[in-house]
Write a protein that binds this DNA or RNA. Structure first.
Lengths: 352, 352
DNA sequence: CTGAAAGCGCTTACAG
DNA sequence: CTGAAAGCGCTTACAG
């Protein structure tokens, strides 16, 4: 790449490189308007675009914001990414995006790549690790932080940097409260893999609330944290539990994410089991793209985009006392058709 | 940031900086294994991570891949981004993500930022422009290309670089064919803004096919290219068209995207109009997250993730004759419940 | 195989 | 206000 260089512009404009630099890249020490104008028009004419790599090296600040997500196509992460992106624009940063694919090795590689690029800050969304494997990651991150790098995690603290914590446990507990209030009395759970903290927290909150109300889940089925995982789990669940006949109390299933809930509904439908006619279902996240699903899904809304923005803010704002250290993404229960009891009283229930 | 430096590692290992560089960063000219090992362990001990900015400057190659999308939270773009991300991992690149928000100014700024970072290649997905505004963009991009930058667009050619073109027009035409084959005879269209080429191409292909079959749309309603746009359009459409009574031929509405179709269905449902009972609807894109929508949506599948991969390949592969210049994202019609005529024969139709 | 040195394209004290 | 020069952290001919 032989792009136009600052020194070329300076030469063509008949000034020193220092002057050209000061004119073109917002220095407070502004040269005379005549010279400035000459430099500007020369730069324009030559099509000069400053080399950000060289600037970064000279300033030792890249204005890069690193973001690692598990899967950018997952609506959960793409919503967060949107928030990060928006905040980074306001904060004049560029986003360096890495995907970890739920693979611990890739996750470490991603982080290392972001460190190599000397991103001013690194945001890790939906990180996945167990206590053994987290060592390398934490080591890399804390070295990075020691050198002035800023770290923010979304989901769980990793011991370095600040964190945006979604109210997974509390939200799930409030959901259980609301479900009990609505009249449900039989519960089961579909969740993700045991080592996934997001899923674990949600199950924990849900179960704890149930216990307070004097209930406990009749079954807990774990599967891949995906639509297909929910589909499979739906099948396994009905083998483990009794769906009531027309007389009994209906079963209410909490799926640890909307995406799993959708899969479960599809799985039941394939077996002729209707929601909420034969079984009630609640999800988590309240993904916007799924708001028009039929039946409308009871869920727990999380401010995903806002959480992305906050993570960027936490990571980029000074470490001074002013800024909060951690922030909570508050959850809000949305009771909807999928857990409705009204239509559940008999076999003749109509949807709508 | 005072990260450990190559020269520090070299010093600590008692070798020259050149040697350290050769050991640590895959040069073919490998030093003796004893020295190499000493350098490696020193680097490890000191926690050395190469500064990618400095490397980029020295090598004049950043290994950065720029991607600009309109909205990363839109499933259309996040699917593409996933493909780009996957390919870039295989090609050892990092992704620099920019969002243009359907704003021409932001779009230009995004591209300029990517150029400033000297990305090896820039991919523009779902670009939006009219012939007047495209000037600046094309100018920036062609200057970039002149300096060795590679460009790929997804959606429409911009006159510089290669392009991945989704079969919007052909796919929509095939959809119309299939719908006519299935027995539909009355049509209407819900589309995005006139200046959006994606929408325009789809409408054009659909209408052209209709014409060949001797039909023409009874109404064309344009709205925002979003769920809410579809919702609004649904309302306006029924004011402009006659929905048949129990006897007449049913209306079949083509929405220019799945997201608009979903919105339209919600809009009708809010007015007591059922799909496909009262009106048939087809979308476009076949978004995976919407596959479990009720009714199952007739759509035209586009290989979005694959298109992202191809764009990365086109952009990063050599300009030599070997590689194809442009590639088509083939469309595949998926006829499903939302355009089913079986249930449409009377008022007693049941969904499922 | 190994090293001294120039150069990548900027910024920024330091002088004038 | 303006410029000469050092320095940011690497790579890579060029010698030895």
């Amino acid at each position: 790449m032989a792009a136009v260089t600052l020194s070329q512009v300076a030469h063509a404009a008949g000034v020193s490189q220092a002057t050209a630099s000061r004119v073109l890249n917002g220095s407070t020490r502004v040269p005379g308007e005549d010279v400035a104008e000459r430099v500007r028009s020369t730069a324009e004419r030559l099509g000069y675009v400053a080399n950000a790599q060289a600037q970064a090296l000279a300033r030792s600040s890249t204005r890069l914001l690193g973001l690692v997500v598990q899967d950018i196509a997952d609506p959960y992460f793409s919503s967060i990414a949107r928030g990060v992106q928006a905040a980074s624009r306001e904060l004049q940063r560029q986003v360096l995006l890495a995907s970890s694919e739920r693979d611990l090795t890739l996750q470490l590689e991603s982080v290392l790549a972001l460190i190599a690029h000397r991103a001013d800050a690194i945001i890790m969304a939906g990180s996945l690790w167990d206590e053994e494997s987290v060592g390398n990651l934490r080591h890399a991150l804390s070295g990075y932080a020691d050198n002035g790098g800023r770290v923010a995690t979304i989901g769980q603290p990793i011991g370095v940097g600040r964190t945006v914590e979604p109210a997974n446990s509390d939200g799930a507990a409030e959901l259980a409260d609301a479900l009990v209030d609505a009249g449900h009395s039989r519960f089961a759970i579909i969740c993700g893999p045991a080592e996934m903290r997001t899923s674990k927290d949600r199950v924990r909150g849900f179960t704890a609330s149930l216990t307070r109300h004097g209930f406990r889940p009749e079954a807990i089925v774990s599967a891949d944290f995906s639509r297909d995982g929910g589909f499979d789990a739906a099948g396994r669940l009905i083998e483990e539990t009794n769906l009531p006949g027309s007389g009994g109390a209906p079963l209410c299933v909490f799926a640890a994410s909307d995406v799993m809930a959708i899969g479960a509904i599809a799985g039941w439908r394939a077996r002729g089991i209707g929601v909420p006619r034969d079984v009630a279902v609640a999800g988590f996240d309240d993904i916007p793209t799924l708001r028009d699903h039929t039946p409308h899904l009871t869920s727990v809304e999380l401010p995903l985009e806002w959480m992305g923005r906050q993570a960027a803010r936490l990571a980029l704002s000074g470490s001074e006392s002013g800024a909060a250290n951690d922030v909570i993404g508050e959850a809000a229960v949305r009771l909807r058709e999928s857990t409705s009891l009204a239509v559940n009283s008999g076999r003749h229930g109509r949807r709508e």
